[in-house]
Simulated scan of single mutants.
Amino acid sequence: MSGFKTRELPSDAFVLYIDAYHCDIKEKNKIRKASVYVVLGIDLQGNKDIFGFYTFFSSENKADWIKVFNDLIDRGLKRIMLIVSDDFPGISKAIETLFPFTDHQLCLVHLQRNVRNQMDKEDSQVFNKELKNIKENSLDYEDGLEKLDDLCSRFKSKYPSFIKHIQSNKERYLCFLKISRKSKKTHIHNKSS
């Protein structure tokens, strides 16, 4: 197991999916609250791999995420196009500090779940259907932002606080559209070369 945790990582990654799992761990006949931080990476060739998992006997926090990111850097990871996470406070600042050229994508699955929790059933179904359409059919990042603004404006009067929260994070909900466009341009350029 120690070889897995110390092995060298690729210097470049397309995306990291990061999350913390909260659980109880039995240690020396005592149950302790823990957070297990998991990092799933996809390299530039599209290969998936667990880059690391880390156990901390504390609640999820920014300081521990910084330790995780520093370990990834120490093991060779230098550049990442996109990091996908939930909206945990502090992750954005940790990413900006250690990976300043990396886009931070907020997880759309978490957003859809929050929509179901914050809106009534009929509204949440409409909103999530439109959100899926934005994800799959936006021409580019700017088009996606415009469509998300239009969608939010339809529900703003009924759910003002929740919609304000979505709009304050809209760029991070749609970061992947910037990369999709870059990838398409790279693919076209490579074909014409």
Rank of each mutant, 00 (worst) to 15 (best):
G3P: 05
F4I: 02
K5W: 07
E8F: 10
P10R: 02
D12T: 11
F14D: 05
V15T: 06
V15W: 00
V15A: 05
L16P: 01
I18Q: 01
D19E: 04
A20K: 05
C23A: 09
I25S: 02
K26P: 00
K30S: 12
K30I: 15
R32W: 13
R32N: 15
A34R: 13
V36F: 12
V36P: 09
V36N: 10
V39C: 10
G41M: 08
D43A: 00
L44H: 10
N47D: 06
G52K: 02
Y54A: 06
F56L: 08
F56I: 07
S58A: 14
N61Y: 08
A63P: 00
W65A: 01
W65P: 08
F69H: 05
F69Q: 04
N70F: 01
R75Q: 09
G76L: 12
K78E: 06
I80C: 06
I80P: 03
V84A: 10
S85F: 02
S85P: 12
D86C: 10
D86H: 10
D87F: 05
D87V: 07
F88D: 03
G90R: 04
G90Q: 01
I91A: 03
S92C: 08
S92R: 11
S92V: 03
S92P: 04
K93T: 15
I95A: 01
L98P: 08
L98R: 12
F99I: 01
F101H: 07
T102D: 09
T102I: 07
T102V: 10
H104T: 02
Q105C: 08
L106T: 07
L106I: 09
L108Q: 14
L108H: 07
L108N: 15
V109N: 03
H110M: 11
Q112W: 04
R113V: 13
Q118Y: 10
D120I: 06
D120W: 01
D120F: 05
E122K: 15
E122N: 14
E122L: 13
D123L: 03
D123T: 03
S124L: 09
Q125P: 01
V126P: 00
F127A: 07
N128L: 05
K132F: 15
K132D: 13
N133Y: 15
K135F: 13
E136V: 11
N137G: 00
N137K: 09
D140A: 09
D140K: 00
Y141S: 08
E142N: 10
G144Y: 12
G144A: 15
D149E: 15
D149H: 14
D149I: 06
D149M: 07
F155S: 06
K156W: 05
K156G: 00
S157A: 12
S157E: 14
K158M: 05
K158V: 04
K158G: 03
Y159D: 02
P160Q: 01
P160T: 02
P160V: 04
I163F: 00
K164H: 06
I166D: 05
S168R: 10
C175E: 05
C175F: 02
F176L: 11
F176C: 07
L177C: 02
L177H: 03
I179G: 01
S180T: 02
S180W: 03
S183P: 00
S183T: 13
T186R: 13
H187R: 09
H189G: 06
N190I: 11
N190E: 15
K191G: 07
